[in-house]
Design a protein around this nucleic acid. Structure first.
Lengths: 341, 341
DNA sequence: CTGTTAGCGCCTTCAG
DNA sequence: CTGAAGGCGCTAACAG
């Protein structure tokens, strides 16, 4: 029924092993033999059996994406990027959702690794900063790549210079005349929250604006939280003229709240976010934000992972590029015509 | 190094096969033996080798999600539902993106199936209605389940009574006094587009309102398209007082356009969508829509798939429930105070 | 109820 | 540069 390597060998008049060599691009095959084998394989429509390959070769040709419920847009982009890389390397992508705070978190991860036999993992924040996980993965000796990890020492994956990106964004706001700029922080577990806060503070400092703790509020990257935080900020007697939310979802929540309060954007208050997820263009007004090349980051991280799978010390930490997206949610100060309801 | 089934057998003082029986929950093992084997397996921390199981057992314990780039929210929900089912059945979930219109579409699908050795597939629209794909999958004899397929005969999966849902939505609009109700259609390739259009027409008929082709515009489920279609509708001399967009993304685009035109929602125009994706609550005003239990549908489809994997005639077509979500984007007719810019 | 015997299809030795 | 034998870890089919 199914065509096996043996059939190809027979058709090509060589041994199984020679076919195997050709298929796996191993050396020590004469050009002529190679061609003959390839022709036979094509004619018979031969497809290697992954299970057999895995069993004999001790690898699964599977990588798993380990994640803990980040925003769906973010995750989809990461997935797409990983798929780009996986397809190019003839690997398959498996999904492995976990729960960071769970009691048996590590046991669960063990389970996944054992059960899937993935050759490697890609971690998204905040898993990428879970100390116990790092350690466990090291013990198990399973290769993994990190997306936007806090700690970069001796690890592979991809990061963005988020601090610098935020400094640029702050410079943009300052150039529009804003000096009373608020910040809604991200989830405390994510490295990004810290970087973006740092960028905010640096941006203020660069403009000679004093840091005012009242203008900095704890968020968690969620839309609803953004909406709530914005309310606190916009109800202040001396309300900020600009709000930098640590991601687009919270910025969208901010805009939502401002709209409900009858405030004009950017007339009464400018709002900006980070990530450039689809929501940035799907709200009104469209959001000024930093474009984070999430898909590309997924691809790059997976690419580094493959390098490490091949060699125990392969791969490195890559820095991806960002881009400011100036849209209509930010504008010059004081052009507003408040229309409180 | 790794503990094998043989080690467990030795530790428990039984044969390999008996251990295998216990692990696979097969019958014909005495309770006492079973306990002994389970204890031994636990003590040794035994984990079966999936590759070996696959090779010997002719199944991969893998299901693949075949999709063609629908909205990320939709896909994430489907994924989450599938994962719920997969985890419960000790299966793994693999991602298999394809391109519907591609030249070598079928060859690509073949490739995926051969290369992944998935035991079954779940198809999302519009793949679920691709005639060539259906046929090919039938030839290959690979089990698959469908989410929201147009044709239901002899197939398994899950559907929603979308026509009925839309009829209810139309009744809601009519009850608010609307009679001039427009519709932005979905992507022609999706069954949902037809159902939602049918529901729209039925809803009009039920209210004794004549169908006006001018008020029905071709869309494709995308946000931007919704925005463009809305412009055409809202610039009409005798513009509609309500717009039913075939999904939330297009409804969001509609609201965007209305906002830009300075129209008040729902004062000047009511807008409603379908799906209840996160965007429905993330725009302002929040969207009246039909809640489609996408995650649950992913779970149910996968569940039916497992039944079919077990038995060639197992599984069936399930009907999932919906729920109207009445929010602030719809309201009584004529309460608006237009403020064109 | 339990055990034995063959593979599943490929890759890894190690000879030639 | 090529091939023959053995085994990866498990399960199916058959015996008992």
């Amino acid at each position: 029924m199914r065509v096996r390597i043996e059939d190809v060998a027979e058709a090509a008049g060589v041994s199984m092993k020679t076919v195997s060599r050709v298929l796996n691009q191993e050396p020590n095959v004469s050009e002529e033999t190679r061609k003959r084998v390839e022709a036979a394989a094509r004619k018979l429509q031969y497809r290697p059996n992954p299970s057999a390959r895995s069993l004999a070769g001790q690898r699964s040709f599977l990588v798993a994406l380990l994640y803990d419920n980040p925003s769906s847009n973010y995750l989809m982009e990461v997935q797409a990027g990983m798929l780009d890389a996986c397809i190019a390397h003839h690997y398959n992508l498996m999904l492995a959702p976990v729960t960071y705070g769970e009691r048996k978190f590590l046991a669960h991860v063990d389970e996944i690794i054992q059960h899937s036999r993935a050759d490697g993992l890609v971690l998204t924040p905040p898993l990428t900063d879970h100390p116990g996980l790092m350690k466990r993965l090291g013990q198990l000796g399973i290769p993994y790549a990190n997306i936007s990890p806090k700690l970069r020492g001796g690890r592979i994956g991809v990061v963005l210079d988020e601090e610098r990106a935020v400094r640029e964004m702050m410079a943009h706001l300052v150039s529009l005349g804003h000096r009373r700029i608020a910040h809604i922080k991200g989830h405390p577990e994510h490295g990004a929250s810290q970087w973006r806060l740092n960028g905010y503070r640096d941006g203020l400092a660069a403009a000679g604006i004093a840091y005012d703790p009242e203008l900095v509020i704890d968020g968690d990257f969620h839309y609803d939280t953004g909406a709530i935080c914005a309310q606190r900020l916009l109800l202040m007697a001396d309300r900020p003229t600009a709000i930098f939310a640590a991601n687009d979802d919270m910025a969208a929540g901010t805009i939502r709240t401002a709209s409900e309060m009858g405030l004009s954007i950017p007339g009464d208050v400018s709002v900006c976010g980070f990530d450039d997820t689809p929501i940035a263009r799907q709200i009104y007004p469209p959001l000024t934000t930093v474009r984070q090349p999430t898909r590309e980051m997924g691809r790059l991280a997976t690419h580094e992972l493959f390098k490490r799978i091949k060699a125990p010390d392969g791969g490195q930490m890559i820095t991806a590029g960002y881009e400011l997206q100036l849209r209509q949610s930010t504008g010059p100060i004081g052009k507003g015509r408040t229309r409180r309801r």
